[in-house]
Each structure stands twice: as structure tokens, then as C-alpha cells.
Simulated assay, not measured.
Amino acid sequence: MIKIAPSILSADFANLERDIARVARGGADWLHVDVMDGNFVPNITLGPPVVQSVRACTDLFLDVHLMIDKPVRYIEAFARAGADLISVHLEADHPTRIAEALREMDRCGVHKAVALRPITAARAVLPYLEQLDLVLVMTVEPGFGGQAFMEEQLETVAQMRALIARHNPACRLEVDGGVNAKTAPRVIAAGADTLVAGSAVYGAADPAAAIAALRG
């Protein structure tokens, strides 16, 4: 089943509870939370206190995407704040520390995920794949919302689907970046089963219709 995870990066932060409720009523499956530190990516967004506030106003599954350096330092804080799933970027630390971050997710009882920037090959996930609940393939460079979809990443999505089918069929495959009604069918055809969308949902006059269009 295709899951739709609207990204609150495109919501109105002055009316965040309202905007979360709108996508929940519109049929969103998950809520995607983009965390940026101004170091791993050239933007700063939010931290555990905001995640805690989001958790207090919704029962939606919270998909927390850490675009931060050395993410193992913050796994417990985001888990305590209410994250259901945490994804860490393979490029954000040494492989041994990424493995440590995944062990910390286990200890904290959250679902485990890794994320890949467009510069990273699908095969980089292999040392971790058998233990993951989700792999996130970026189809833009992480850091800012509203970017154009990178067509070449469809091949990475397809390669990742093949690796998941071979090594961990229960693992979900998420795509984030430039996902809209035009690109969604293409990433689904390539193998994605979980779609992150920001402006395509929050910028729509009717979020429910936008979510239905993404789902296909």
C-alpha cells in the first residue's frame, strides 16, 4: 500500500496544529518531520521541542528525518519527543557511528531508517539493510523544500527496490524531494511505496485531493 507523508517543512509554522489537522483529515498516513542543523545541510529547521509539540497534537505516525551531523547524539532526544521512525543519513558520520545510531534506535524502541543523498549509491545501504524498517532515497539535494525533482534518481530508486527485494522485503522504500502528482507515478513505478510531499500537499487548496492524486 502506498503511504503519503506530508512534510511539515512546507506547513505554516504559525498555524502548525491547524495544518497538521488539515492533512490528517485529508488522508495522510504519516507526518514527515525534516530536521536540519545548518551544518550537514545549509539550513536550520527545528529540534526535539517542536517534535514534542507536534506529537501532542496528532496521532499520525511521526517520520523524523535527521539531516544533521553525527546523528547518534540526538536519537534519544527525538525518540523521547515522540518520533515513531528516525532516519539518519549515511553521509552524516563514519559507518561505525551510523551502526551505533541504529543500535540506539533499537534501545529507544523506534523504527530504524537510513537516508541517502543523490551522491550516494544504492549499494551503500547494504551493511545495514537487513535490520532496517525503511530506506529513504532523496530525489533532491537535502536542505530546502520546493526543489525540482532529479530525474536521474529514478534509477537509484529502482536499484534500491531490487536490493530490498533481495535482502529485506519487509523494508519500506521512501522517496523525498520534488514529489507531486506528475512525479509520484514515476517513483511508484520505480519501486517506492512511501512518498514524502511538502508543497504539493500544503500548497494545494484541497489537501485531500492532493493526497489522493499522489496515491494514484
Score class of each variant (00 low, 15 high):
residue 107 R to H: 10
residue 214 L to H: 09
residue 155 E to V: 15
residue 124 A to V: 01
residue 139 T to M: 05
residue 8 I to H: 08
residue 190 A to S: 12
residue 48 P to V: 02
residue 215 R to Q: 13
residue 134 L to W: 03
residue 135 V to W: 02
residue 76 E to W: 01
residue 21 A to I: 02
residue 200 A to W: 05
residue 67 M to H: 10
residue 150 M to G: 11
residue 22 R to V: 02
residue 143 G to A: 09
residue 109 G to E: 11
residue 125 V to W: 01
residue 31 L to P: 00
residue 90 L to H: 08
residue 172 R to K: 15
residue 164 I to R: 07
residue 129 L to I: 10
residue 156 T to Q: 11
residue 14 A to S: 14
residue 210 A to C: 13
residue 170 A to I: 03
residue 36 M to D: 12
residue 193 D to K: 04
residue 19 D to F: 00
residue 52 Q to H: 13
residue 144 F to S: 12
residue 63 D to Q: 12
residue 147 Q to H: 12
residue 59 D to A: 14
residue 192 A to K: 04
residue 138 M to F: 03
residue 134 L to Q: 14
residue 62 L to R: 03
residue 33 V to W: 03
residue 14 A to K: 12
residue 152 E to K: 13
residue 108 C to A: 15
residue 206 D to H: 11
residue 11 A to F: 01
residue 201 V to S: 07
residue 210 A to H: 09
residue 77 A to R: 11
residue 24 A to Y: 01
residue 67 M to F: 04
residue 200 A to K: 07
residue 197 A to V: 01
residue 89 H to Q: 14
residue 14 A to I: 02
residue 102 L to V: 01
residue 160 M to L: 09
residue 16 L to V: 03
residue 58 T to H: 01
residue 18 R to K: 15
residue 17 E to W: 01
residue 106 D to T: 03
residue 30 W to N: 06
residue 213 A to Q: 15
residue 27 G to R: 05
residue 25 R to D: 15
residue 35 V to E: 06
residue 164 I to V: 13
residue 37 D to K: 07
residue 159 Q to F: 03
residue 72 V to S: 13
residue 116 L to A: 09
residue 149 F to H: 06
residue 213 A to E: 15
residue 40 F to Y: 14
residue 145 G to H: 12
residue 88 V to P: 01
residue 64 V to E: 02
residue 143 G to E: 09
residue 150 M to A: 09
residue 96 T to S: 15
residue 162 A to V: 04
residue 25 R to A: 15
